[in-house]
Write a protein that binds this DNA or RNA. Structure first.
Length: 421
RNA sequence: GGAGACGUCGCAUAGUCCGGUCGAGUGCGCCUCACUGCUAAUGAGGUAGGGGCCUUAAAGCCCCUCGGAGGUUCAAAUCCUCUCGUCUCCGCCA
């Protein structure tokens, strides 16, 4: 949710942001006028309530014989108050509906436009050159007997898979490596619930434009989370943190579930786009003024992981129109996928500034002891999808795949995965 | 699955039966001051959050919040309903 003070003081900045996103800018003026209406209604209610409260004290203290008359007056007051209260509530609800539609104000420098208007910040690493016909991850998965897509489909349908043998170990190795790195950087590990209540799903903003993406269990009124960000963002909801002089950092591990509605026919081959996968997610709570620096740190940690996995990648600054509604700025790190001849997103890190924390009511004590809305950021440190890039980039002429050195200690020292016969 | 207890201002609790004098007492913790060679101890005071009015600011005043949502009432921490959470016992299962 945007800051209502900003709405009053600098509506132009919010409008400019909506325009850069290709979103509706008229919401801003509408919200501002609803805020005025609400304010007037609320003041009216408060004035009447003050009268009622004062009168109530008279009633309480009055001698018995005067009570009846005073109560009669009080009844009229009570009716007025109820009416004014209903009007104030109504105005507030109308405001909230519009306010929740306005997306986070994008940071200066974020490229305007849609998905294709991203800016490449850098390219790192050398793309592999094969003197043989490169196999895609599906073929490699089969050859090495590490990914079983056929049986995944048999038991759960399309976009499901088994990771098998060294494939399963490779994913766990990646997660372990990422968790070790995160722990060294001061992150607290958290294994999170993957089923959450409606209000948490709502609060993190995933029931907005992404609602079709989310699995829902009506019998229990619970949602399956598409990322541990949901649980991590909800972790400190309705809390006031003692201090954020140093950011509070969590590394959340969870399985993620996504319906992938609306992506029929897209990435149907292999495990690039699946209904269920694992992810290690970084999540930071910090002071708003530290958020941009923290964002750069999250990006740097992501790059470190890509480098440890010896993957060529590029970093892009995602355009305003392609940001989630909570994000004020987002970097994607994309790894080179040889058989696609293209970079594909492996990680994403978003600076949500105070937008997400405001809706979830997460605050901290600043140096004056005042409760202030925190900033939140998130970023991927490893996901199942990385296996695609690892397998394809490290494949050898004989069909084997070299395991990046950093992962070997987690795989019993194995140096490569060889085809089975 | 059955039975019951509880949810109050950082923590622990009082208040709920008998509605108004309760936005709320006490202890601990924390902050300030006094005393003290230092610490401890002692004494005095302060110590929830949000919104609004006013103001250069401070102060002050007003409204809302006693797990949450409704209801009864002139008036609800207190009565009623629902709901969420925690705990105990029994049963069942790992």
């Amino acid at each position: 949710m945007i800051d209502i003070n900003l709405l009053r003081e600098n509506p132009a900045s919010i409008k400019a942001s909506q325009v850069a996103r290709g979103a509706d800018e008229s919401l801003v003026d509408l919200a501002a006028s609803l805020a005025e209406t609400k304010k007037t209604a609320l003041q009216q209610f408060e004035t009447l309530r003050a009268k009622q409260n004062a009168h109530g004290k008279l009633v309480a203290q009055a001698p018995k014989e005067e009570k009846a008359a005073l109560v009669a007056q009080a009844q009229q007051l009570s009716a007025d108050v109820k009416k004014a209260e209903a009007e104030a509530n109504q105005a507030d609800q109308e405001l909230m509906v519009v306010l929740h539609k306005i997306e986070n104000v994008v940071l200066d420098g974020v490229p305007a436009g849609g998905e294709e208007n991203f800016v490449v910040i850098k390219e790192v690493g050398k793309k592999p050159e094969f003197d043989f016909e490169a196999k895609d991850h599906v073929a490699l998965g089969e050859l090495l007997d590490v990914i079983d897509i056929e049986r995944g489909a048999k038991i759960a349908g399309s976009r499901f898979y088994f990771l098998k043998g060294m494939g399963a170990r490779l994913e766990l190795a990646m997660m372990q490596l990422a968790l070790d790195q995160a722990s060294e950087a001061g992150f607290t590990a958290l294994i999170t619930p993957t089923l959450v209540k409606p209000e948490i799903m709502q609060g993190t903003g995933f029931l907005g434009e992404h609602s079709a993406e989310v699995y829902y269990l009506p019998a229990d009124e619970l949602y399956l989370t598409g990322t541990s960000e949901v649980a991590l963002a909800g972790y400190h909801s309705d809390e006031i943190l003692d201090s954020l002089e140093t950011p509070k950092r969590y590394a959340g591990w969870s399985t993620c579930y996504r319906r992938e509605a609306g992506s029929h026919g897209k990435d149907t081959r292999g495990i690039l786009r699946v209904h269920q996968f694992n992810k290690l997610e970084m999540f930071s709570y910090c002071k708003p003024e530290d958020a941009e620096a923290e964002h750069e740190k999250l990006l740097a940690w992501q790059e470190q992981m890509l480098q440890k996995c010896e993957l060529p990648y590029r970093v892009i600054d995602v355009a305003a129109g392609d940001l989630g509604s909570s994000a004020a700025k987002k970097y994607d790190v994309e790894a080179w996928v040889p058989t696609q001849g293209d970079y594909r997103e492996l990680t994403s890190t978003s600076n949500c500034t105070t937008f997400q924390a405001r809706r979830l009511n997460t605050r901290y004590r600043d140096q004056d002891g005042k409760a202030t809305i925190a900033a939140t950021l998130n970023g991927t440190l490893a996901t199942t999808r990385w296996l695609v890039a690892i397998l394809e980039n490290h494949q050898q002429a004989d069909g084997s795949v070299l395991i990046p050195a950093a992962l070997r200690p987690y795989m019993g020292g194995a140096e490569k995965i060889s085809p089975v016969n």
